[in-house]
Amino acid sequence: MIAPSLHTQRLTLRMPVLADFGPRADFYASDRSVWEDGPLDRRAAWRIFASEVGQWPLMGFGPFSVDDAASGAYLGEVGIYQPEGYPEPELGWFTTPEAEGKGVAFEAARAVMVWARSSFGWDHLDNYIDPRNARSIELALRLGGVQVAAPGADPADVVIRHDLRGLA
């Protein structure tokens, strides 16, 4: 099982490939990963990335790599994650520093939610976000999510729920 390709106005979402690891490793090496258990060295980053990509054959969902549809440039990753200990599949996102602030994660997350609804029929999809990660919380709310009192990946997580029933 590999990811389908999803197309939005500006973006192409597709199955991750090895070349996408570089930006993820850079992210984990930087302070930008502080809300994602980082910073982490390259080996730890590889183990995480490989395990997330490995969700596709194991679970039928996982991360999509996000490219600029016009230039083909890699912009980040948006997808559905359920590592061990997650109560439900989670909607997550990451962008390169260059792609921040341009609505990339917003646009890609919408496409992933539509895909999740049409593929699995789920009623909702949650984000699990560190309470100090204000930027990610703001994006989740802007996408129409609502904070709920549900378990996340960590007891302190802010859980923001997206109602998928109106999609697809």
Binding site: I2, M15, P16, V17, L18, F21, W46, R47, I48, F49, A50, S51, E52, V53, G54, Q55, W56, P57, L58, P83, E84
Partner: peptide, 12 residues
């Protein structure tokens, strides 16, 4: 994580 990484390693 290691188990799932077996799969991702093959894919990539």
């Amino acid at each position: 994580e290691k188990f799932a990484a077996f799969f991702g390693h093959w894919v990539m």
